[in-house]
């Protein structure tokens, strides 16, 4: 069986700068993958190519078919994206933003039906955003807004969830909440999750497979204990750290040496 989402020999450059350089990656259905790497290593670009909004040299296949062969409408029902930042130029309530996820699910001249409202309610409950439903999105805090965006992605009811630093603006509690949610969606709804992450320790705790990018290339791809070692972190981030594997999970944990 072909992988859920697969890229082969990706090349992407902004002018002379190669952002992705011969990247190949096969994402199996139901996998949960954390993409790591320093700023500018190509994480965001990789996610944009995976979601089909950026075109690159090389092949991107969704369920074995080239991604260009899908219409935007079809894609949006298979892949949902939580972007790093969201533009809000006009006043919309959180509920309206979440319901926009349903645009590809109903007739474009129709208003949202019961199924759409239901999907929106469920995803807002899952992200602890029900109480924000009637508030203006541009008046929410960074963390609240981020959770609304996650709710929107869930309301798409897609099979693959791409997240670009989903916990970036969140406090400790909501950070854990988002990681926990990703794991629950992955286990209970069999959602394939690919997330660009910055927090190496949280990534190691929650993600069974990590991909470490360095200057647009895959430096290491595997289980957390293979990817997060003192050597790889020195090579990729240029930082000396101590890695331990505390009980009970025995996942690598990084200690910074000041």
């Amino acid at each position: 069986m072909s992988a859920a989402l697969e890229v082969e020999d990706l090349l992407f450059a902004y002018g002379p700068r190669r952002v992705l350089d011969r990247v190949s990656l096969a994402i199996q259905k139901g996998e949960m993958i954390g993409v790591l790497g320093p700023n500018g290593s190509g994480k965001t670009t990789l996610l944009k190519i995976l979601s089909g909004v950026l075109a690159a040299r090389g092949a991107v296949r969704l369920a074995g078919r080239p991604i260009e062969a899908y219409s935007r409408n079809e894609l949006s029902r298979i892949i949902a994206v939580v972007p790093q930042e969201s533009e809000i130029h006009f006043p919309f309530t959180a509920a309206e933003i979440v319901l926009m996820a349903r645009a590809s699910h109903h007739e474009r001249l129709a208003l949202e039906g019961a199924a759409d409202l239901d999907a929106a309610r469920r995803s807002m409950a899952a992200t602890d955003t029900e109480s924000l439903a009637d508030r203006w999105v541009h008046e929410l805090s960074g963390g609240e807004k981020q959770r609304v965006m996650i709710a929107r992605a869930l309301a798409q009811e897609a099979e693959i969830l791409l997240m670009d630093e989903p916990a970036a603006f969140l406090d400790l509690k909501h950070q854990l909440g988002v990681f926990d949610l990703m794991r629950r969606l992955n286990r209970e709804r069999k959602l394939t999750v690919v997330a660009a992450l910055h927090d190496l320790n949280l990534a190691a705790l929650f993600f069974p497979r990590l991909v470490l990018l360095e200057n647009g290339r895959i430096h290491r791809d595997g289980a957390p204990e293979e990817v997060l070692t003192e050597d790889t972190i020195r090579q990729v981030y240029g930082v000396e750290v101590r890695v331990e594997r505390p009980e009970p999970q025995r996942r690598p944990h990084i200690f910074i040496r000041p």
């Binding site: 909004v53 935007r72 949006s76 533009e87 645009a103 590809s104 001249l109 798409q156």
Partner: peptide
Amino acid sequence: LRFNLITLGEEAALQLGVE
């Protein structure tokens, strides 16, 4: 409906299914 999505920016609109 599409103009609603387009106000969110090009990438968001593409990802939500608008050509």
